[in-house]
C-alpha cells in the first residue's frame, strides 16, 4: 500500500524530532513521514535512546530548591493506572480531493479534523493553511494534474511531504511518503503531471516583495529571529 520513501528527513531534523526541540510544525511533518517510513521509525527509536542518555544524564548540583516531593509522590500513587492507551481513538483519517479520497497519517488527520479551508492559487494549485505555531507556515497543497508552481525561493528551509500522487522538480521525482527538503539557496519549480497532495512546512517567515507589505518585513524577521533564538537554547 505504501511505497518506500526515497527521500528522508536529515539527521539533524530527525534528531530534533526525537529530542523534541523543533517547532510544532516541523514535528508534525516529521511525525507524518515517520508513520509512513519504517526506516525512519527505527532511526527515531535509536535517536530517542541517544537523546535520553544525553538529556537525562546525572547532573549533580541542579537540585530543585524546594523539596516538597514527598507530597507529590503521595498524590501521584493515589491516581489509577492505565491498562490501555486511551489515545487510540481515531479521528477522520481521510481527506477528499475532488474525485478521490486520500488516507492521511494520523497526526495530519488530527490537524485536518479541525476543518480545512482551500484557496485557489495560480498555476492549478490549491492551498489550505493551518496554524501550528508562530514560527512556521504549514499548509496542505494540492497540485492538479499538469500544474506547475511558479519559481520561488525562500529564507530558511521548506519541507514537503508527499501524501498522494507525485511531483518533480529539477532535482528529482517525489512520490508518496517522500520527504523533500529545500533550503534558502535552492530555487525550484515543482510540477506535477499526475496531480499531488502534499503537506508543506516553511520554517521561516514569508518575505513580501511588493508594495506596502514590504514595510512588515523587518518586524517579521525580528520576531522570527527571536523565536528561533529561544528555540535553539
Amino acid at each position: 500500500m505504501i511505497t518506500e520513501a526515497k527521500y528522508h528527513p536529515t539527521a539533524e531534523q530527525l534528531g530534533g524530532f526525537a529530542r523534541g526541540t523543533v517547532t510544532a510544525g516541523m514535528n508534525v511533518v516529521i511525525s507524518a513521514h515517520v508513520e509512513l517510513c519504517k526506516e525512519c521509525r527505527g532511526r527515531t527509536i535509536s535517536l530517542e535512546a541517544e537523546a535520553a542518555a544525553e538529556m537525562l544524564q546525572s547532573v549533580p548540583e541542579t537540585r530543585p530548591q524546594s523539596k516538597d516531593f514527598s507530597g507529590i509522590i503521595d498524590s501521584i500513587v493515589k491516581q489509577p493506572q492505565l491498562q490501555t492507551d486511551e489515545q487510540a481513538s481515531d479521528p477522520v483519517t481521510e481527506i477528499h480531493m475532488l474525485e478521490h479520497s486520500v488516507s492521511l497519517p494520523k497526526v495530519l488527520a488530527k490537524v485536518a479534523s479541525e476543518g480545512l479551508v482551500w484557496k485557489k492559487l495560480a498555476g492549478g494549485i490549491n492551498q489550505a493553511s493551518v496554524t501550528l505555531d508562530d514560527q512556521t507556515q504549514c499548509e496542505f497543497l494540492y497540485m492538479k494534474p499538469g500544474s506547475q508552481v511558479p519559481v520561488h525561493k525562500h529564507q530558511g528551509s521548506e519541507v514537503t511531504l508527499v501524501l498522494d500522487g507525485s511531483f518533480s522538480d529539477e532535482s528529482g521525482h517525489y512520490k508518496q511518503s517522500d520527504f523533500v527538503v529545500r533550503t534558502a539557496s535552492d530555487m525550484h519549480q515543482p510540477a506535477s503531471e499526475e496531480g499531488c497532495l502534499c503537506f508543506a512546512v516553511l520554517d521561516s517567515p514569508l518575505t513580501f516583495t511588493k508594495g506596502l507589505a514590504r514595510l512588515l518585513n523587518p518586524f517579521i524577521r525580528y520576531r522570527f529571529r527571536r523565536a528561533t533564538a529561544a528555540a535553539s537554547h
Binding site: G20, K106, V107, K110, V111, T131, L132
Partner: peptide, 9 residues
C-alpha cells in the same frame, strides 16, 4: 490543534 501524543503516538 495537536498534542504531544498525536505527534509521538
Amino acid at each position: 490543534t495537536v498534542s504531544a501524543d498525536d505527534i509521538w503516538p
